[in-house]
Computed example of a mutant assay.
Amino acid sequence: MKTSRIAWLIVLFMAGVAVSHAEVHTNALNRDPLVREAFQHFYDMDYPAAIERFQRVHQAHPNDPQATALLLDAEIFQELYRQDLLDTTFYANDGFLTGHHATREDPTTRDKIFALADEAVHEADERISHNPRDVDALYARGWARALRCTYVAMVERGFASGFRLANKAKDDAQKALQIDPDYVDANLVTGVYEYVVGALPLPFKFFIGFAGISGSKKTGMAMLHDAGERGIASSVEARTVITLFLRREAKYREAIEVVRTLEAQYPRNYLFALEEANLRKDAGEGMVAVDAYRKVVASAERPGYYASARLELAYFGLGDALRGQRHFKEAAEAYEQAGYTQNVGPELKVRSMLAAGQCRDLNGERDVAKRDYQMAIDAGPSTSRADQARKYLKAPYSGA
């Protein structure tokens, strides 16, 4: 996205003016005052407050798949955040697809999420059976399927089943756009599908049974930019996804420009502030990135500044930034703070303690390194990183 366009978006958002919706169609529920209020809490990451309001919307609109999908969205992202699975460093390379990872699925939460997803699809099916051109129902069904796919892929690591859901979600969103090209929110699901399938390594396509199915990164990014600029229910999500995809492509300056539009709109969103620090680290900004992480931590320590701040994510990023500057002792301490944080997710704990052990080895602290490796193994014994930790228990990590 051109710098001039980004600057214009920042001006609009800071002025509190929405990008022109005159030519954009959407479900009327997306403009409901209670829905907008719920989304404000959602993007401030106050998930309990958002869920309480979406539950009221859900109760007030029985048999409406959009109302059900709104509640499903909040429930899923609350759970992903609880498990530290909204850390974009986890998805910025293909190791996410190929490694064995540690997650701690809560069956009660899973059942609630799947029940809401089934409910939304059933409600949409009922409406589509009476009117196959019901754009609102098609969009809601596609969105619900995409949300369920997100949970299945990120928590259960069920990539084959997840991509089958994604394919159905894309079909729904694509049909909605064919019926109404101005239903811009549907660009989100279709754009993500196009980009992800276009970016998948060929061996992985064979593995999940997607050989021969094509996608286009260029087309996907164009659709996401449209949703980011003009979408009503999808603008924030589209720009968030854009930053992740730009990060994967090492286009860090462009990604920083996009994430700063999100920070301007939602300054109390912990993950948007954290993402700017992540991007500055990946861009090789060295101590500027270190300072950015420390600023995030300082803000999180201000009472009430963030509704919810999982500091282990910032400490892990800080460790990475310090490690990149060869400040191995400080990096190890930051990683250990991440790993020792109360209620840290198992995946992040394994990653943190493995990295801490490596930095302790590089700093000549072999006994402490061995302790950290053992903690990584204990946190996720069947993971790929635990296998690495076992290797370094036998012989010190040398950086090779």
Rank of each mutant, 00 (worst) to 15 (best):
G345Q: 03
P65T: 05
V19L: 11
R351W: 01
L200Y: 05
F77A: 03
D378I: 04
N167D: 12
V290K: 01
E263R: 15
A140K: 06
E52P: 00
I10R: 15
I256S: 02
V258D: 14
W143M: 06
L224E: 10
R164S: 09
N343Y: 08
G212N: 08
E237Y: 09
T219D: 11
E333T: 07
V11Q: 12
Y266M: 10
Q337V: 01
F159L: 05
T26D: 03
P381Y: 10
M45C: 03
I377G: 09
A300H: 04
M14E: 15
Q337D: 07
G324W: 01
H130S: 10
K170E: 05
L80V: 11
D106L: 02
E365T: 00
K391Q: 15
D171L: 05
E37G: 08
A273C: 05
P65M: 08
Q174A: 09
H100E: 11
H122T: 14
F114Y: 14
L188E: 04
R366D: 13
E23I: 00
A238L: 05
T3H: 12
S382E: 14
G284E: 00
V184G: 02
R280P: 09
A283S: 12
L311P: 02
E123N: 12
A211R: 13
S382G: 11
D226P: 01
G158E: 13
T68F: 03
L279Q: 00
Q55D: 11
P203N: 04
Y151V: 05
S384A: 11
N131W: 03
F42D: 01
E123T: 04
S214D: 13
P201M: 04
A273V: 07
W143N: 12
A115D: 10
A389Q: 10
E249W: 06
D320G: 07
I256P: 00
V290P: 03
Q55N: 06
G304D: 05
L262H: 08
Y340P: 00
R133L: 07
G345Y: 05
V17T: 12
T219H: 08
N27D: 12
T383M: 08
G319C: 09
A389D: 08
A334D: 00
R253A: 15
A395G: 02
A389C: 07
M223L: 15
D372W: 03
Y193K: 05
P107S: 03
A38D: 03
H61E: 09
D84Q: 07
V17P: 02
A222T: 13
S20M: 03
T243K: 02
C359E: 00
I76H: 04
L318S: 06
R390M: 08
L116Q: 06
Y340V: 02
A137N: 00
F163D: 07
R104E: 06
I208R: 06
R133T: 10
D106H: 04
D84K: 06
F114K: 09
M353W: 15
H327V: 01
Y373M: 05
R260D: 15
S382D: 13
L313P: 05
E263C: 13
T240M: 11
G209H: 08
K251R: 15
T89A: 08
L348K: 11
V197Q: 07
F163K: 03
D106Q: 12
D118I: 02
P65Q: 11
T98V: 14
M223N: 08
S20K: 02
C149M: 13
V192E: 06
A314W: 08
D125L: 01
I10C: 10
K205A: 01
A277N: 12
L354I: 05
I208H: 07
H101L: 10
